[in-house]
Amino acid sequence: MDFVLIWVDGGDEEWLKEKAKYSGTPVDNAAARFRDWGLLKYWFRGVEQFAPWVDKVHFVTCGHTPAWLNLDHPKINFVRHSEYIPAKYLPTFNSHTIELNLHRIKDLSEEFVYFNDDMFLVAPAKPTDFFRNGLPCDEASMQFLLPKRYNISKSIDGHNMGVLNRNFSKKKSVRKHPFKFFHPAYGLKNNLYTLYTMASPVFSGFKRTHTAQSFLKSTFVDLWEKEPEVLDATCACKFRSFFNVNQYLFRYWQIAQGRFAPVNMHSVRQRFDLDVDDAGDIAKAICERKYKAICINEDENENLDVFENIQKKLVAAFEQILPQKSTFEK
């Protein structure tokens, strides 16, 4: 089993200049979303401490690397965008393009776990937390799409569902795998919600799990064979768009096929949103190791004082559980 991590160095001046050239946005206004939280080394420390069993870490960037990273580490495969993303899509500043082509990474294993750079291991994990009997661990809790600021026709999830329903019959999928769509691990509330959605003849949405995601490489190959035009249209966009599809489509595809092992995702992997959750509570969750994997989803607050205060709390929490340098560091 491999891990895949994508990363952007938001302080790379050359990258910012190139991004500004394609976006038409001045560099000074383009950097806030990509600021460095100084947490990347804790991702690698977490992998070494809590998942020493992983075979390979595919570290994906446009070409830049942190100065402290030991690229000679036997478990690291440093992957540039140009080494796996088709040239016609490059350069890209669209995370969806980076994600939709992950199966093209050389020597990527069939079973892999995908991480954004805001997702961390914070407690000992086992391979069975991510895969069981060759199947990705996941949760098929269904819901209705409830977009807040845009209609369903102009939402990424709306487009994902359109592609999914074009290829799968919800009724047939549920009939074929009833105990995967309804499972005790999901809890009574989620099972009741899924039952409620049965009134809809099509897949109407799934409970979001913005955390480390288990994938089969063959899922990517299958979807590219079935829907090349849709994926090509997204990859052709230099920047993210509401008219894109994204990596969740591959997750939904696996669920519709029944190619997953039912688990309670939120008992192992948890997401925190910095615009909702207090940084102190997140730091506490890190220190108490209540979950094995967490996502710290950043809001786009540009207040420097707020950012620095949150950063200090998070760094202190990670230092408490992962104080020792890993062999991934020089």
Rank of each mutant, 00 (worst) to 15 (best):
D278G: 06
D281R: 07
L249I: 10
W253H: 13
R240M: 06
D275H: 15
S326V: 08
N264F: 10
F242E: 12
I296V: 12
V276S: 11
D277K: 03
M265A: 11
K290V: 01
Y252Q: 14
F242A: 14
R251P: 10
I321G: 06
Q257I: 01
C295Q: 04
H266A: 11
I286R: 04
P262R: 00
S267P: 00
F242L: 12
S267A: 15
A317F: 02
A279S: 13
A256S: 12
D278M: 12
L322T: 04
Y248P: 00
R269G: 04
E298Y: 06
A236N: 13
V263S: 11
D281I: 07
Q270C: 05
A261I: 02
K290I: 01
I286K: 02
R240P: 08
L322M: 10
H266M: 14
K284V: 07
A285S: 14
I321F: 07
L274D: 09
V263F: 09
D278Q: 11
E308H: 06
Q270S: 09
V263I: 15
C295F: 01
D277P: 05
R289L: 00
Q270T: 04
D305E: 07
K313P: 02
K238P: 05
L249E: 07
F272H: 00
K325T: 07
V268L: 12
V268E: 03
W253G: 14
I255S: 03
V268W: 00
N309E: 04
A236Q: 14
V276G: 01
L249H: 05
R240N: 03
A256C: 09
N264E: 12
D281G: 08
F272M: 00
V263R: 06
Q320F: 10
E300A: 06
Y248T: 13
Q311F: 01
E288N: 11
Q247I: 14
R240V: 03
D278N: 13
M265D: 13
K312Y: 03
E288R: 10
D277C: 11
N297R: 07
V245W: 00
S241G: 08
D275W: 11
G280E: 15
N264P: 05
F272C: 02
D281E: 11
E298M: 10
A261L: 08
I255R: 11
I296Y: 02
D305C: 03
F243N: 13
I282Y: 04
A279H: 03
Q324D: 08
Y291I: 01
Q254A: 15
N297V: 10
E288F: 00
Q247L: 12
G258A: 06
D281N: 13
